[in-house]
Amino acid sequence: MSDTKHHPNRLGLWGWLGGGRWGMERYLYALHRVTGLGLLAYFLLHIVVTSSRAFGADRWKTAMDAVTGPLFKFGEYLVFVAFAFHAANGIRLALLELGFAVGEPIEPVYPYRTSVHVQRPLAIGALALAAVLVAIGTASMWLVD
């Protein structure tokens, strides 16, 4: 190899989240990450807060009072929306990543039909399922009570 000075050209984090001539699956990928991290952050706090039930009714009420109000309710709603997406897309990903929804190897004939096309109905189905879950959650949290 020569000692030519190469210029680094990795896209970096922009390659995860940024826009481009990308397919919908890339945005689902980015959203899955963001919702996953959000859910984890909530979950770690949730464990601590809900463990107050071990100390009886008073401590439970104190803990619940500390996380009430419109801001917390809206935050909780966002967590629910993140859960709905992450769960529905997670079903899709588990099926894909275990090789169930990508199709069989085929002779590639132009225009190529790849696994991205094969799984597209599943992706749309996952989004539809997330939308249904969000609708139920919205009704339950904001409309019924």
């Binding site: 769960a87 339950s140 019924v144």
Partner: peptide
């Protein structure tokens, strides 16, 4: 990680039904 995801799907689904969807479901 994938197996844990499957467990979560069932149990967190139950948790969400209990806590956040009980008004409808």
């Amino acid at each position: 990680h994938i197996l844990a995801g499957a467990v979560i799907l069932v149990l967190l689904g139950l948790h969400m039904l209990t806590m956040h969807m009980e008004g409808v479901v």
